[in-house]
Amino acid sequence: MTPTESLSITLSVNGATVAREVPARLSLADFLREELRLTGTHLGCEHGVCGACTVLLDGEPVRACLMLAVQARGHSVTTVEGLTPAGGGLTPLQAAFQRHHAVQCGFCTPGMLMTATALLAGNPSPSAEQVRDALSGNICRCTGYVQIVEAVMDAAAGAEA
């Protein structure tokens, strides 16, 4: 096996199959943003701390700045654009974010949604403490998190009802 600086990859992004030739060093986040123009995945630090680039890899939240695009080969990636069908409304979680004023500048929002989506998929009725723990890798500078936690709890309660 010879290492190369450029590779062909095929993966699924938001349910669609995507094939590209990419440089080895291209991060998954840059691939999504620059190659696929899915700019809902944000870059806040590019060293794995802020969580703004969180996407789902096979349903699990990951930092897209800490993965190479080539590592997503054969996997399924979901970004914030993939949470709702094109042109079609909000998910219950997104709607709860709006209701609770869990969004201010919006820059952390996609990462928060992806992390919370994964949380609720695995734990449909989390405690507030579990929500806070799950979101603790996603920095928000605007909201103080209170309304974000309320929104996630509300979405969970709504789904249960």
Binding site: T39, T41, V80, L83, T84, L90, Q94, F97, Q98, G106
Partner: peptide, 9 residues
């Protein structure tokens, strides 16, 4: 909020 929530900001 809608554009922020759907990645369209």
């Amino acid at each position: 909020d809608v554009r922020f929530l759907t990645g369209r900001a």
